[in-house]
Design a protein around this nucleic acid. Structure first.
Lengths: 159, 159
DNA sequence: GACTATTGGTCAGGTTACCTGACCAAACAG
DNA sequence: CTGTTTGGTCAGGTAACCTGACCAATAGTC
């Protein structure tokens, strides 16, 4: 009794998840290996592109699609762990800007290096031509998706 | 002061995440729209390829990379919501097999259809040739990654 | 057969990343 | 001056995860 829908897996969604998860696990592993073992996945995810330095809490909350309160808590952890400080924005005295400490910049650097390394590994697997084509396709998809505002544009209001 | 690492974003990891998240949000939206609004993302994720029907708790835990206890709890929710039942495996009386109810099969079907729809939309964006190439590349990456056991092969022991 | 080890699953209890709601202070609009 | 909006914080709750202890059925060994 085969279903009406014959799946012909693996689905693209499935594959995307597997590959992304692989990159993400390499990312966490790189952080831990480099000695940043006092942070958990939620913390590290805040460091992902485009990072934390110079951003306000609200910007980060919007980017991550979580509440300001959640970001507040996570930034609090990172601050008490010595990864960053929050200083008042000179141009807007209600706002506070995240500033990475040397420790924070160290972790940021590890994460960026790892991102490039993952990219390298993908190109190695696919080969140069196919790899570049793959990157272009991905970029095109990202353009199209973010243009439509289909991701991250639910209730820009507050949540 | 440009960093040692000039990022040339967007990174592949970032793009993968954006695209995957887009697919995933379409997935959740499809479930909700179809009336399955008593399940949350954690529940729906259990239904993702290759699904629940016929599997044992332990299989699912391993696939999802979470503990048996967590799966136990989530399956408990889904059972009390009427999505599935757990019946003793005739061939192994300690094991219990997940069996989807009609309601559960309904949700499963919605998710499968949505997966195909997402695939269609990606092909529409990239065009037929480029899209097929993209799928092939993804499949190749998945093969390579899962072959090395780099994902989901941490401690096959318990977890 | 009896004896241990392994496997599949459950119960009890803790942690924490999220959430909602209420609130304050600075900035802005009239 | 008087609301309203914006950036952020405090208090408290929810639930998806975790660890540890445990039981029942199976498999391996003598």
């Amino acid at each position: 009794m085969s279903s009406v829908i014959d799946p012909t897996p693996p689905y693209v969604g499935y594959s995307l998840r597997v590959v992304w998860q692989w990159v993400w696990e390499l990312n966490m592993a790189a952080a831990t290996r480099a000695g940043y073992d006092d942070v958990n996945p939620a913390h590290v995810s805040l460091f992902r592109y485009p990072g934390l330095d110079g951003y306000r809490l609200t910007d980060i909350a919007q980017r991550m699609q979580i509440t300001k309160q959640s970001v507040h808590q996570l930034l609090g952890h990172l601050e008490s762990l010595g990864y960053l400080i929050r200083e008042t924005d000179p141009g807007n005295r209600r706002a506070r800007l995240v500033r990475l400490t040397p420790k924070g910049r160290g972790l940021q650097e590890v994460i960026r290096r790892q991102a490039l390394d993952a990219e390298r590994r993908i190109l190695d697997i696919l080969g140069e031509d196919r790899g570049e084509q793959f990157k272009k396709s991905l970029a095109l998809l990202v353009d199209e998706i973010t243009a439509d505002g289909e991701v991250g544009a639910h209730d820009a209001a507050d949540r």
